[in-house]
Amino acid sequence: MPEIHYTEDELIALLKIKDKQAFSYLYDHYSASLNGVIFRMTGNKELSEDILQETFVKIWNRFESYDPSKGRLFTWLINIARNLTIDTLRSKGFKDQQKISSDENAVSNIKDEKSVQSQFDSIGLRRQLEQLNPEYKKIIDMAYFDGFTQDEISKKTGIPLGTVKTRMRSAILELRKKLVNN
């Protein structure tokens, strides 16, 4: 199939009219990122892929409800993925300690998989992120990958809520700086 590139606006317009090719493109470009997040939450490869498939079914069926004025496409996608994962984990009676977020596990998995074409050099990017302040990284990961609210993070870590907020802000700013420089 010829290589096609869509801008985010084009992609959204096409998905609104249920264009199959655009959906295929969406999958190729975002499935690995979403799968990575789901895997961070479940720690289980098969379960992650089940949830990933379910996520894309939902994306396809509900795309008309996506409102670009409320946020970027990926934010919407990852919210669907995260909510589905949380629902799945709850329904299956998963406990907090099973929300494994082992970095090494994730890294070894990435190396094993043959990568879909990605617009990012994810290894180079990862190296940048390793330099992120560990305290910042922990809070970002807890919020973004594990879906904990700032309040929950504060309770779980014993860090005052105010500090959680400041660190999250600093983490985002540092993240932005690193990713821009990458």
Binding site: A32, G36, V37, E49, N109, F120, L125, Q128, L129, I140
Partner: peptide
């Protein structure tokens, strides 16, 4: 978004 793609895990 970039942070997530840095942790991408192809299915």
């Amino acid at each position: 978004e970039d942070y997530a793609s840095a942790h991408a895990l192809p299915a």
